[in-house]
Design a protein around this nucleic acid. Sequence first.
DNA 1: AATAGAAACGGACCGTGGTCCGTTTCGACT
DNA 2: AGTCGAAACGGACCACGGTCCGTTTCTATT
Lengths: 195, 195
Amino acid sequence: MSNPLPLLTTPPTERRDAARNREALLSAASELIRGCSVEGVTMEAVAAKAGVGKGTVFRRFGSREGLMASLLDHAESEWQAAVIGGPPPLGPGGPPMERLLAFGESRMHLHLQQGALIDAAGRTWGENYAVIGFATMHVRILLAELGVQGNLPYLATALVAPLSLPVLRQQFGPAGMTEEQVLAGWGELVRRVVG
Amino acid sequence: MSNPLPLLTTPPTERRDAARNREALLSAASELIRGCSVEGVTMEAVAAKAGVGKGTVFRRFGSREGLMASLLDHAESEWQAAVIGGPPPLGPGGPPMERLLAFGESRMHLHLQQGALIDAAGRTWGENYAVIGFATMHVRILLAELGVQGNLPYLATALVAPLSLPVLRQQFGPAGMTEEQVLAGWGELVRRVVG
DNA sequence: AATAGAAACGGACCGTGGTCCGTTTCGACT
DNA sequence: AGTCGAAACGGACCACGGTCCGTTTCTATT
């Protein structure tokens, strides 16, 4: 008997072979990264290592950038989980200002750690609403908890922006700042915005 | 007689044919953009239109991204000139706060206008110190004129960051802000930072 | 004007991302 | 089990960015 109301119960299901292949391809890509570097992650190499055809890789991930974004998703999901349900100061429970500062620090570290992958993912990642949207919304909520009045949506994006990889690179590179200076700077920015 | 001190007088001079070709290639690329779009600017097409070999394009600009960055340089130079020596409120002469707000608005418009080109130039442009460095330094100077105390280098980068193309795209797209809202938001950010 | 050496040129060549379409596999329903 | 339509697969194929190296062109010097 077919479900007469395939609403929320059936998130357009994925065929078994498709799921297997997606898994195999992600593992293959991870292993290739471990073996060499992100440069070595060629679509053909990934396909070969996973034992599937090249077309399958593109069918699953759309593009090389899409594949990279999928790899990033793992780290991002873990990070989001830590924000939502992990221990303080990043997770819930502590004072909002401490949470906010912990947010900045951990987000910065996440971006620096995943730098090569973020580059390889290009706009697929950087303009992904689910990613930027989560971080921005989180900051917005914390600002509200801190009693900040004003254009919270904008202020949230403005606080998240300087944590992006290109900005961090510019600060650590040409501007010659240290990690401590950048973190202190972001903290100062937050304090001024919160008022 | 050769110059015994070829220090500042000889910025490693460029051969005539090389200069001609650089010029021809830039025109060809501009025309191709006008004709179709940035996608149509193929290295081979540019070379053919300029009547040179493909290798020459790479010799001059290093890569496709480098070529795009060179195209951007024209607009950027004009903008920098307007900041340094143009009429107020963007140029010198007006009150610092008005200059700062004019800076934000014109920078935003520049990024939006050149969006396709900025994308095509990739990191070659976005992480170019001469570009980000100028904008950041300008903001830093204005903050100093406004009597702001604290970590000016960082605060300057933090004010420039939300004017970057990816952030603007996110604001205009998923976040659904209007141009007025974004400008007002940036102004509010500036006021809070200045204190 | 002749020369020599450095710099620029050109286009064949290669690797990789991305597409296309005929073939195979899955799984829902009988 | 058998059938059938939809979904996934595979790998030949294409286009474009980037490299390489033998050839040509410039310019400084005599």
